[in-house]
Computed example of a mutant assay.
Amino acid sequence: MADNLFTMLSAYRPGSTATPFENYCTAGLAYFLKRGHRMLTALIAHAAGLGSDPLALVEVQPRLAEAGVADLLLTYEGGKRVLIEVQVEPGADESLLPGMEAVAREWSERPAFLMLGLRSEGVPDPWIPLTWFDVVDALDGDPDPVARQYHDFILEDILGTGEVPLEEALSTNRLYAIGGAAIRRAFGTGSRYINSASRPLHGQYRYLGTTFTPDGGDMTYWIGLVNETVPLGEHYHLMLASKEKPLLFPVEQPRATGDWKWAHWTGMGRVVRPITPMQYEGLLERIKAR
């Protein structure tokens, strides 16, 4: 793959199960590995249980025979390899992993399997967990301005640690990241969630947010932005919805979600300032009998 950062970010291999955003995150990581970033290289070598052999080749979305397209494959000068599965949200498609493992085991030297994502434990064998927080730590304090931007991108767009202005909430992954992080903090590892949004119309959404379950059951809660008016306008409200159970401080169902059969709604009012993780946490506190 090309060494140019922007060429790497725009590349995409047909047949990959990675989302464009996941591929973007993977390409960013590969860029710094190809440039020999010392701390990132050491992080991966340590997690994979490798020695000090220099990294020789970084492959983004390599095809592993008939098993499909992997996310990242690293080859070291001594011949050792590390296969990396990259995930940016829970519930990622892992159906191709057994086939990739089978192909990799046929190599002359058994590779290491790393799963870079949000989980620090509970990944399927033989994968070794590595988190995006580990990557942030490896990038922390780097004087390179591009590395600092990638560091901040991971924190805000993947891990959901920062506030987000409305315009960016509607056009980046940052609102989804805030929602996912708030749900994980509130309900722990038993929670599940998916990003969910209406189809945009003239640049506006009816709704944009996260459908989730606090306890691993059916996904009967939703949190995010709802357009204030129909026809759609430029103003949004930050809201929480429940399909079955009442919520604290209830409000009427917004018109923009009129086709939803969800009876219970609560909200923070019109968004006039950047959306914060604290606002999300405050809404999640309105779920009764947690």
Rank of each mutant, 00 (worst) to 15 (best):
A11F: 10
D125N: 09
L5S: 02
G117R: 15
P129N: 12
G68R: 05
E109Q: 14
W107D: 04
D144G: 07
F21N: 04
F133Q: 14
I44G: 03
V86D: 00
L57S: 11
S95E: 15
T131H: 10
M39K: 15
P111C: 13
W127C: 08
F133Y: 10
P145Y: 05
T19I: 02
L96Q: 09
D71C: 05
D144I: 12
L9C: 04
Q61S: 11
Y12S: 12
T75P: 03
H37N: 14
W127I: 05
D134V: 08
Y12G: 06
A11C: 08
P98F: 11
L64S: 10
D134M: 06
I44L: 15
T17N: 14
G141N: 05
I128E: 05
T26W: 01
Q61N: 11
T41R: 09
E89P: 06
F113C: 09
P126Q: 07
R119W: 04
Y24F: 15
F32A: 00
D134L: 04
A65E: 15
L72H: 02
P98M: 04
F6Y: 14
L73S: 02
A42S: 13
G36Y: 13
L43W: 04
L43Q: 03
V103R: 09
Y24D: 04
G49N: 09
E89W: 04
D140A: 13
A11K: 07
G91Y: 00
E22Q: 13
V135Y: 00
R13N: 01
A138V: 13
D134Q: 13
L9T: 05
P143W: 08
Y12D: 13
S52E: 15
A56S: 14
A104C: 14
L33C: 11
S95P: 02
E94M: 12
A27G: 08
V69G: 11
